[in-house]
Design a protein around this nucleic acid. Structure first.
Lengths: 139, 139
DNA sequence: TATTGTTATACTCTATAACTATA
DNA sequence: TATAGTTATAGAGTATAACAATA
């Protein structure tokens, strides 16, 4: 037996804001000749050096899909495949200096434009929103 | 001179929740053999009968991209092209009974799963979140 | 045998440019 | 001439299945 946990209005607002944020991300990525999935990939590689299959899992992609994604990013010198020292089947993925520069530029612009979405809220409201979204984000 | 309007944490939470909601939408759409853009199209056609170019504008697509999108949906009998009564160049787009059924099913599931994201919040918090997201949604 | 990654293939989604038909 | 829509073409992103190399 399931129960309605949220008003239609809350669901609607979550969906609307989600599309709004995605539109900002997509537009900024495109301005740097990147797709959203490429930005996500670069964002992950900024902090880790995963195997192909690990990155595929993070991104929710099949390994074959990731091969193409990495191919295109590698051709643009944004990422690099590094042979795994202990397993000759495996590849470690790294981000290049150019990739880092790009992802930092994108993230700075995102901070500005997403930040502008909440600029109309007074500070206490922004703090409340931060807390509430934190809970949703952990759900 | 620009100023930081939002904490990095708030921006992060907005982006994280946005991806979370999109993942739900994409998964539910896929379970019905639909893409996100097809669901958006059906959602619009539930309330309007636009021209091709009007729908393209709503969705932010080129008219040629929409041709293919409508082709594939029409082949599955989800939408239909209806000749415009007054302009023989133009096409009005409508949703079929099957399309309506599909979009209603998707939206019901979305309400359930997105609703579940906020199920942990007590009701007053959900109401506050609704209001705050309403402001962001209008920004 | 199992695992890591690539390749072959096919489909959706998207854009640009050229085109047709109508206004 | 201008507008509404389609078609031709190209490329990114995705999946499934078959494959090669290594464990």
């Amino acid at each position: 037996m399931s129960r309605t946990n949220a008003s239609p209005e809350l669901v609607d607002n979550l969906v609307q804001v989600s599309f709004k944020v995605q539109a900002i991300l997509t537009r900024i990525a495109a301005a740097h000749d990147l797709s959203l999935i490429q930005v996500r990939m670069l964002g992950i590689l900024r902090d880790r050096r995963p195997l192909m299959q690990e990155l595929a899992a993070y991104l929710g992609l099949e390994k074959s899909s990731l091969s193409g994604l990495v191919d295109r990013a590698e051709q643009r010198a944004l990422v690099e495949r590094v042979p795994h020292p202990d397993d000759r089947r495996a590849m470690l993925l790294g981000i290049t200096a150019l990739g880092q520069k790009l992802v930092r530029a994108v993230e700075a612009e995102v901070a500005g434009e997403v930040g502008a979405l909440v600029a109309a809220l007074p500070k206490p409201d922004r703090e409340r929103l931060t807390t509430l979204l934190g809970v949703v984000s952990e759900a």
